[in-house]
Nucleic acid binder design. Structure first.
Lengths: 129, 129
DNA sequence: TTAACACACTTGTTTTAAGCAAGTGACAAT
DNA sequence: ATTGTCACTTGCTTAAAACAAGTGTGTTAA
C-alpha cells in the first residue's frame, strides 16, 4: 500500500496545521460549549449562534476523529452519546481564552468573557469519572 | 435610514465574534506572515501553504476593513502597497502563540514553533516609524 | 522601439462546503 | 394507535474556495 501523500496538512508549520484542524467558524464554538459542561447534541444546537444540524453532526464526527472530543453512551435504548473533551481538547482552553480577551478588547460590539471562563483551567474540564 | 439588523455577528459571545472575523483557514496565516516581517503580496504568496491569489486579495481587503492590518504605499508608479499589522492585529500574537504550542504538543506530525516566535511580543511587531 | 519581465492583482469557471428545510428511526408516554 | 422526544440524515440551494488564465502599469535589456 502506497503512502497516500505526505500528510494532509498544508505545511509543517504548527499554526497552519492547527488551522487545518480547527480553522473554521464552528469547531471552536462546540469546544466552547463543552467548556460550559454541555454534553449533548441538543445542548449544542441550543447555543445562540444557531449551528445547523448537519454541520453539528459533521463537526462532532470530525472533532472525535482528530481526538479533541470523545463520546460515551448515556443510554442504550436507543443508543445515544454524550460528548466530552479529551485532554487534547481541554488544552485548547488557553487559546479560547486569549481569543475571547482579544475580541473583547478590540471589537467594540462584543461582550466580555465571563469570569468563570477566564479563570477556568483545562484540567477541570475533563469528565470526572 | 434603517438599522441594517442588529450587527453582523452571530451572537454577543466574544469567541463567536472573533471567529466571525478571523475564523477561517487563511486569515491567521497572513497575520503569521506579517509577524515574520513579510509585507508584500508576493511574500504572502510565497509561503509554503500556497494561498491562491484571489483568496489572498480578498483576505487582505477584509483584514484591512476590520482594522487588523493597514497598507502603506511603497511606490507610486505603479502605485503599490506594503501591509502591516495594526496594534489590533499585533495583539493576536498571543493567540497564535498558544495555538502553535497546542498544535506542537498534540499533533505529532507537525513541527515546533521557532523560539523567536514564542518569544516575540506584540509591541515589537508594529511598523517602526 | 519593441520585446521580455516583474509585480500585484482581477476575472471566469469549476469544485467543495455551508446553510436550510424536511424527513427518518428508535424508543417512551398518553 | 397517536403523539412526542432526541439525535441525527438526506436532498437541495446558495455561497465560498480553489484553480487557471488574463490584465494593467510600469522597468530593464536588446
Amino acid at each position: 500500500m502506497i503512502d497516500k501523500n505526505t500528510s494532509n496538512y498544508r505545511s509543517a508549520c504548527p499554526l497552519s496545521t492547527a488551522l487545518d484542524v480547527i480553522g473554521d467558524k464552528w469547531s471552536l464554538l462546540v469546544v466552547r460549549d463543552m467548556c460550559m459542561k454541555k454534553t449533548r447534541y441538543g445542548d449544542f444546537l441550543a447555543s445562540p449562534e444557531g449551528i445547523p444540524t448537519n454541520i453539528l453532526a459533521t463537526r462532532l464526527r470530525r472533532l472525535e476523529e482528530v481526538g479533541i472530543i470523545e463520546k460515551k453512551p448515556y443510554q442504550t435504548k436507543p443508543l445515544r452519546y454524550e460528548y466530552f473533551l479529551t485532554s487534547k481538547g481541554a488544552s485548547l482552553l488557553p487559546v479560547l481564552q486569549q481569543l475571547a480577551v482579544w475580541a473583547h478588547s478590540y471589537i467594540p460590539e462584543c461582550g466580555a468573557p465571563p469570569g468563570w471562563f477566564l479563570n477556568a483551567k483545562p484540567e477541570n474540564l475533563l469528565k470526572d469519572r
